[in-house]
Amino acid sequence: MMKSRYLKDLELWTGADRLNKFIELVETAVDLDHLENGEYMISSSYDSALTELKEQQELLDSQIYDLHRQTAVDLDLVVDKALKLDKGTQFGHVFRITKKEEPKIRKKLNTQFIVLETRKDGVKFTNTKLKKLGDKYQQILEEYKSCQKQLVIKVVEISATFSEVFESLAELISELDVLLSFADLASSCPTPYTRPDITSS
């Protein structure tokens, strides 16, 4: 009974031409690396224009990282420990040091860098090179987002065609959930459970 009532349908809806097709769509269309950072982006492999923009973005990332390392050497600070590289919406790419480190490099900080913000957690600053690279990075990111807009619409439209799969699976799984909960209750009941007699009254 279980096989004919549940397993057969479960295999049908999770099969290669139903739910697995949706999984393939998501894995192909969505950039899962960015997803870990909370960014929802269309995968660059989905479109040649996106691929080109992604390559430019990776090149800029590399240049920014190299500048981060070089700045750490120039300031005689440990990369990622004393001198951090932050990326935010307010300033873009910035260097950050703790308040404790600030007195050690104050002279260089005031002559070679632009201090953006001083707070309890540290000092955020930049220089012309980082600002230029950060601005280019932001420009490429905006182009990427603009380019992916039409693709997002297409992916959402395709995803909507899978609604029958999800509705059918939801119905099947919810029924199983109720029955399994009921079975668990019956088996763990302190007194033996017996099926009730249903009368017409």
Score class of each variant (00 low, 15 high):
residue 45 S to E: 12
residue 35 L to E: 06
residue 28 T to C: 00
residue 130 L to S: 04
residue 79 V to Y: 09
residue 121 D to Y: 09
residue 143 E to T: 10
residue 111 T to R: 12
residue 64 I to K: 05
residue 50 L to C: 11
residue 153 I to D: 11
residue 91 F to H: 13
residue 30 V to P: 00
residue 174 S to E: 09
residue 118 T to W: 01
residue 166 F to A: 10
residue 105 I to H: 04
residue 38 G to K: 03
residue 97 I to D: 07
residue 82 A to P: 00
residue 154 K to D: 13
residue 105 I to E: 04
residue 48 S to G: 08
residue 101 E to D: 13
residue 153 I to S: 09
residue 61 D to R: 15
residue 160 A to T: 10
residue 146 S to Q: 14
residue 36 E to Y: 08
residue 70 Q to V: 02
residue 73 V to S: 08
residue 80 D to M: 02
residue 110 N to K: 12
residue 59 L to V: 10
residue 174 S to D: 09
residue 60 L to I: 15
residue 99 K to E: 11
residue 174 S to C: 03
residue 55 E to G: 05
residue 73 V to K: 11
residue 87 K to G: 01
residue 128 T to G: 02
residue 127 N to H: 10
residue 110 N to W: 02
residue 65 Y to T: 10
residue 62 S to R: 13
residue 64 I to P: 03
residue 58 E to I: 15
residue 94 V to E: 03
residue 44 S to R: 03
residue 157 E to C: 01
residue 88 G to A: 05
residue 102 E to I: 00
residue 132 K to N: 12
residue 171 E to H: 11
residue 53 L to R: 06
residue 49 A to E: 14
residue 105 I to D: 02
residue 125 F to A: 02
residue 56 Q to G: 14
residue 163 S to P: 00
residue 28 T to N: 08
residue 47 D to M: 03
residue 40 Y to P: 00
residue 30 V to E: 00
residue 78 V to E: 13
residue 118 T to R: 11
residue 115 V to Q: 06
residue 30 V to H: 00
residue 90 Q to R: 15
residue 139 Q to D: 15
residue 128 T to Q: 14
residue 81 K to R: 12
residue 152 V to S: 07
residue 28 T to E: 08
residue 96 R to C: 02
residue 154 K to R: 11
residue 93 H to Q: 10
residue 44 S to D: 08
residue 151 L to S: 04
residue 73 V to F: 08
residue 49 A to I: 08
residue 170 A to S: 13
residue 50 L to G: 10
residue 100 K to H: 07
residue 163 S to G: 01
residue 135 D to H: 13
residue 55 E to K: 14
residue 112 Q to M: 09
residue 151 L to D: 04
residue 43 S to A: 15
residue 63 Q to L: 15
residue 144 Y to I: 06
residue 126 T to D: 07
residue 113 F to M: 01
residue 159 S to W: 00
residue 74 D to R: 10
residue 54 K to R: 15
residue 152 V to R: 09
residue 34 H to D: 06
residue 87 K to M: 07
residue 156 V to H: 01
residue 70 Q to M: 06
residue 166 F to Y: 14
residue 130 L to H: 04
residue 163 S to Q: 11
residue 154 K to E: 14
residue 83 L to F: 02
residue 99 K to N: 13
residue 82 A to L: 03
residue 98 T to Q: 04
residue 57 Q to E: 15
residue 98 T to E: 09
residue 130 L to Y: 05
residue 38 G to D: 04
residue 33 D to L: 08
residue 174 S to F: 04
residue 75 L to A: 01
residue 130 L to T: 03
residue 44 S to W: 05
residue 124 K to N: 08
residue 128 T to E: 15
residue 150 Q to Y: 06
residue 55 E to C: 02
residue 39 E to N: 08
residue 91 F to V: 03
residue 45 S to C: 03
residue 171 E to R: 12
residue 87 K to P: 00
residue 171 E to L: 11
residue 55 E to A: 14
residue 143 E to L: 14
residue 45 S to K: 11
residue 49 A to Y: 07
residue 124 K to C: 01
residue 107 K to L: 08
residue 116 L to D: 02
residue 77 L to V: 06
residue 36 E to H: 09
residue 76 D to P: 01
residue 97 I to A: 06
residue 89 T to Q: 14
residue 67 L to R: 09
residue 33 D to G: 01
residue 135 D to Y: 11
residue 40 Y to L: 14
residue 72 A to N: 01
residue 102 E to K: 11
residue 148 Q to G: 07
